[in-house]
Design a protein around this nucleic acid. Structure first.
Lengths: 224, 224, 224, 224
DNA sequence: TATGAATGAGTATTCATTCAT
DNA sequence: GATGAATGAATACTCATTCAT
């Protein structure tokens, strides 16, 4: 594994077996690899480790995957699939909490933050892997864009409240900034959870406040 | 170098020679290691590479440093020293550009962003290294806090314009968020520079706007 | 299969099924193995390859054969059987082309060369295999001796024209030399066909000439 | 080492150290590899074997060579160098034994055969390696051509005695055939020395006879 | 009988670190 | 001090063979 795959696996080369012993061993592999990903905080585990933890032979792993990279991509893909459903619910949950524009924006930030926090343990090493791995980067970008689109779709309904020339661009900018701040707070791309992250609630609140002020209030330059 | 040092090198074990051939060879080491850090996008270069690029023997490297980790820490320390002076100038430069609170906030964001962009090539792999390396993390945190403190010191003079219960906390929150957004845009912690980062000016402007509105305008909740 | 079998499989351990689906699958195995032998230029293909190419399961292969070696021996045996008939015709064809001793010798060389050339694609990797595999060596030797015997039988009828103390030995020596030269020209024992083998016709003609002069003309030592 | 190098190493990547411990260890590597080549009858030995037999570490081998292939090429090159001097002496030795054309041709065959026999133990596995390895093939071809050229140069002085339209071509054809026959007799390209090779003297004599008759006597077709 | 998933010993290669010169 | 050769543990990957279903 000198260089992680540089391009998207057009068609994933591996496929999940559907039943029985075979499926059980397949899942032990993925579970072991995911656990090691989380525990080591990166991909610096050996296939021997996967073999031991998952109680599968090295050969079995290579029976399913052509390389360690492919195994990691399978773990990633499975993780992204799990995320997918929850991610679509962010806007829905936020909407159910508030109907005012300001409240909605804050709720979206809050739900997004909680969603990411719930999966931080796995996202941390995945983001680290993304540093070198185009496949992981690309899949991550797609998921991120889906999330952004769903928020835009919701907030654009309030476009008249958004004090920007281009409301959609403002929403996207705000989300990019909020995502970056949350990811940093949660230590995405770090091997371990950050230590001094005591102020999670405060941080969410600040971020919601900032987002709401940014979108919904006329520029200070106009005011002053 | 499976595991980067986990704790602060209480006292750095290496010291720079003060003169002559010795100093020249010492600097070739550091320069080679830094160049490789940037070129490979991480610490995945071998000491043999350093030896070749820097025209120093492996033995010389181990004469100065007890391990590859220490060499990298020296590179990091030297880099942080170079940054230190420029970082202190951020506030000064911003102040010279605008005196109104709003303009000052925007100028600070702008200067911070440009400062980070100027050093992005080196900061990218360093942030990646920080993922596993407590020493790098800690030094980075210290520098970051110095930067934050200097901004706080400047903006706190305008505390009456800051529409928050705790103006200092608001400033710190804003800076954390802004820093995260800039770092993400510049691809800190990634092996390569991000591809589609076309909208640098827009992004700086959005961030400045967001910071100004966050700090200087009453909450939308109060208003609505 | 680190070490090919060192001794003759006293009794071949496999047997061909006589009918139906079973026979079809058996032949797909042999065909796949033979094709891979030719394509890879040696035995460096895996049973997984045979399984894929021949659309037979690994289990099926092991149902018929106790090892990869045995499979290869079966391919070899089948190939030698196909050769057997054609080989017996070499002398017959040569005889029909010329009745003079000189013409007959040349025709035999010509027919032998063409016969080997027709099967060169398969003989190349088989000779390579023979380098390590006593079973293949021994079977090859037997077939070779049959060919030599048939030529001796034919030419010995012209013994009075052969200018040697021991005409039979001279014939055998000549055939050994001719066979070696043809095999070298055709790249037997090489992974690929030789590149610059442009002069096939010339080579056959030289060899025929040499054989004829060797057998049918008194020694130069006698003459000079 | 899935595929031996396909092209000539333009410049050999390894170089022999000139003195001391370093040279001793370098030679132990080459000697061990050569011994294993001969003993195993091919390149099917592991670098661990080389490490054990040569009392050098795996790392030392990779300090000198970039791959197992390169090590084998170095062994090959060293062997070819040793051969080079002796090969140039073939013609000289033959000339000192006989001045008549017929005697000279026989002496050349005899010397060539003895020369090859003396190095058969190493040439056997090298020829096997050449089956897959273009570098070995190419170097071998060059050496072979040098030998052929030196013989042509000698015999062409007797061109008036050579009963062929194109004497040089006849000499080259004869040498190609003789070389093939000797190589086959000596088991070049086989893992082990041939068993039933009882008739070495006879074979040399037959080959010399055949060569002499081929070159020096008018065609039987002309005579009959 | 047929299938193909599972096994695991074996191989080439890398690289931080040590140490003889 | 300086050099760079030597070390060897660690790792991804292959493939003949076994065996559960």
């Amino acid at each position: 594994m000198n260089k992680p795959t540089e391009t998207l696996d057009a068609q994933a080369a591996w496929k999940a077996p559907q039943q029985g012993r075979s499926k059980a061993s397949y899942e032990r592999m993925l579970n072991a690899a995911e656990a090691l990903l989380v525990d080591t905080g990166g991909d610096a585990f050996s296939l021997t480790d996967v073999s031991r933890v998952g109680r599968v032979s090295i050969g079995s792993i290579y029976h399913r995957f052509n390389s360690k990279d492919e195994l990691i991509h399978a773990v990633h893909a499975r993780f992204m699939d799990r995320l997918s459903y929850e991610q679509t619910r962010i806007v829905m949950l936020a909407r159910s909490r508030s109907k005012t524009p300001s409240g909605l924006v804050r709720a979206i930030i809050e739900e997004l933050a909680e969603f990411l926090k719930n999966h931080a343990a796995t996202m941390r090493p995945i983001m680290l892997r993304a540093a070198h791995d185009r496949v992981v980067q690309d899949r991550g970008r797609v998921a991120h864009e889906e999330m952004v689109d769903s928020v835009v779709e919701e907030l654009i309904g309030h476009r008249s409240d958004i004090r920007h020339q281009d409301p959609e661009r403002a929403i996207r900018a705000m989300l990019g900034i909020a995502y970056a701040a949350i990811a940093r707070e949660l230590g995405f791309g770090m091997a371990e959870a950050p230590q001094g992250a005591a102020d999670w609630e405060e941080m969410k609140s600040d971020l919601g406040e900032m987002a709401a002020r940014f979108l919904l209030i006329p520029s200070v330059a106009d005011a002053v």
